[in-house]
């Protein structure tokens, strides 16, 4: 009798481990994701000082040290940062973080600079890599 009860308990525990383990292994699959291949953008533009080229994911401009590209993702909470021509700075529309045209943090909750993007200057134009 006792042996039967113990066996039943044992089988229950085994079932628990089996099903729980199946669920846990399943969670690992749910947590993971397939990373997207990095996006490369080819741009054929002429850069002029003081003019910001606004792309969907990037800002491209001519600084004193040559062309630079900045990510438009706000380092605070990831909103898309916009260019404000009136003040000639970048402003995040969600929480009003401000950045200079070189991406340097000015004010707001971000406390970090805008991330620069990999930029290659080829003979045919610019190649931008968006991670």
């Amino acid at each position: 009798m006792i042996i039967k009860k113990q066996r039943r308990w044992f089988i229950k525990a085994l079932t628990g481990i089996w099903l729980g383990g199946l669920g846990a292994v399943g969670l690992i699959t749910a947590f993971s994701y397939l990373p997207r291949p990095p996006k490369k953008i080819f741009l054929k533009v002429k850069l002029v000082p003081n003019k910001v080229i606004v792309g969907p994911e990037y800002f491209l401009l001519l600084s004193a040290h040559g062309p630079i590209a900045l990510s438009r993702t706000c380092p605070h909470l990831g909103c898309t940062v916009n260019y404000d021509p009136e003040e000639n700075i970048f402003i995040c529309p969600c929480h009003q973080s401000r950045f200079t045209l070189l991406g340097r943090y000015i004010s707001g909750p971000a406390h970090k600079d805008l991330k620069p993007l990999k930029l290659k200057h080829t003979d045919a134009g610019f190649v931008l890599e968006i991670a």
């Binding site: 003081n50 003019k51 910001v52 080229i53 606004v54 916009n82 260019y83 404000d84 021509p85 009136e86 000639n88």
Partner: peptide, 10 residues
């Protein structure tokens, strides 16, 4: 607007 003729109207 930023993507077109920024600062020109100003």
């Amino acid at each position: 607007q930023p993507a077109c003729h920024p600062r020109r109207p100003e």
